[in-house]
């Protein structure tokens, strides 16, 4: 099942010289998560407005956000990957294979409903869940580093269930070789 996804997305990636559509990306990741996340991303490294017309630079963070989805979400106090998360990561793995010079850091984040130190450990687990899945899909582990921010860097500011769900996340951030 997992590998079927992989081949499908790998094929898409190979074909997709001109992938379109935030739409497709959002539906591809199965929920509205990616759409919301794109709007509130803190990890966009390059998004000059002049590039908007021609779309994101291939292999850039913006490319990852718009065309693949840069983040996955976790249940409360969990670090296992659900079907939506696995689908997003399959796309990320394919994208990473398309841009072999790109290296990434996976950030693990938690909501505020835990204690600080435990959340640092939980964020580390989440980041490594993401990394391990990417590696299992063929990404060279040397291209993926991890960092936990615990509950220190929420994207959604509210103290409510929907904000907490957005904050329990693993974010893949391009750290090297981006689109250059």
């Amino acid at each position: 099942m997992r590998f079927k996804f992989l081949t499908i997305f790998a094929a898409v990636a190979l074909l997709a010289a001109c992938e379109t559509a935030p739409d497709e990306s959002a539906s591809g990741s199965g929920t509205g998560d990616t759409g919301g996340a794109t709007a509130t991303s803190t990890t966009t490294s390059t998004a000059p407005s002049t590039m908007k017309q021609m779309g994101p630079v291939p292999g850039s963070q913006e490319d990852l956000i718009v065309n693949v989805g840069d983040r996955v979400f976790f249940d409360f106090d969990k670090f296992s990957l659900g079907a939506d998360a696995r689908a997003t990561l399959a796309k990320q793995a394919a994208w990473l294979q398309k841009f072999p010079s790109v290296s990434v850091t996976v950030e693990g984040h938690c909501d505020e409903r835990g204690t600080r130190e435990y959340n640092l450990a939980l964020g580390e687990r989440r980041a490594n869940s993401v990394k391990d899945y990417l590696v299992a899909l063929g990404v060279n582990p040397g291209r993926v580093t991890t960092i936990s921010y615990g509950e220190e860097r929420p994207v959604a500011l509210g103290s409510n269930e929907s904000a907490w769900a957005q904050n329990r996340r693993g974010v893949t951030a391009v750290t090297g070789g981006a689109g250059s």
């Binding site: 505020e112 509210g158 409510n160």
Partner: peptide, 12 residues
Amino acid sequence: RTTPRDDQGNGG
């Protein structure tokens, strides 16, 4: 003690 925030981040 931390107080809750609204969606705009106010109140925390």
